[in-house]
Simulated scan of single mutants.
Amino acid sequence: MSTTYQPINCDYYDRLEAWATMRTICLIRFTSEEGQVQEVSSRIADLFVLEKVEYMRLENGVVLRLDTLIDVNNIPLPNQC
């Protein structure tokens, strides 16, 4: 994974916010720091920015950088705008 943050598609971010607001349990696939595809099922507790990097905090305590996401609820991240 690149250490330089790549912002995600704005429409997809809005979708993440909607799932967080609706407290939807999401199936989230992402790339770990080791480059492995991992999967977790949890509610999105918070979306936040820290030092110009966007993050997602899950209800189970996991924190993910948004540019590590592969798909959420089987909806893949679109190409960047």
Rank of each mutant, 00 (worst) to 15 (best):
M1S: 07
M1A: 13
M1P: 13
S2F: 13
T3D: 13
T3G: 06
T3K: 08
T4Y: 09
T4M: 06
T4V: 06
Y5C: 06
Y5H: 08
Y5A: 10
Q6H: 08
Q6L: 10
P7F: 02
P7V: 03
P7G: 05
I8F: 05
C10G: 12
C10A: 14
C10K: 14
D11H: 12
D11C: 06
Y12W: 04
Y12V: 01
Y12P: 04
Y13N: 02
Y13H: 11
Y13I: 05
Y13M: 03
D14M: 08
D14R: 09
D14G: 00
R15P: 00
R15M: 02
R15V: 07
L16P: 00
L16F: 01
E17Q: 10
E17A: 00
E17G: 01
A18D: 06
A18V: 11
W19Y: 13
W19I: 09
A20G: 10
A20L: 10
T21K: 15
T21R: 12
M22L: 15
M22S: 15
M22Y: 15
R23L: 15
R23W: 15
C26L: 14
L27M: 08
R29N: 13
F30Q: 00
F30V: 05
F30G: 00
T31I: 12
T31P: 09
S32V: 02
S32F: 02
E33L: 14
E33F: 09
Q36Y: 12
Q36G: 00
V37N: 09
V37C: 06
V37G: 01
Q38S: 01
Q38V: 09
E39L: 04
V40H: 05
V40W: 03
S41F: 05
S42D: 14
S42Y: 06
S42Q: 06
R43C: 11
R43W: 11
I44N: 04
I44K: 05
I44Y: 02
A45N: 14
A45T: 07
D46N: 07
D46A: 09
D46P: 04
L47A: 08
V49H: 08
V49G: 01
L50D: 04
K52T: 01
V53S: 04
V53T: 03
E54W: 07
E54R: 11
M56K: 00
M56V: 05
M56L: 03
R57F: 07
L58Y: 02
L58C: 01
E59L: 08
E59R: 10
E59D: 10
E59C: 04
G61T: 15
V62D: 15
V63L: 10
V63R: 15
L64D: 05
L64C: 06
R65Q: 07
R65M: 09
L66T: 09
D67F: 12
D67L: 06
D67S: 11
D67V: 13
V72P: 08
N73C: 03
N73H: 11
N73E: 04
N73D: 07
N74C: 14
N74G: 08
N74S: 10
N74K: 12
P76R: 10
L77Q: 00
L77N: 03
N79D: 07
Q80F: 09
Q80I: 09
Q80R: 11
Q80V: 13
C81W: 02
C81I: 10
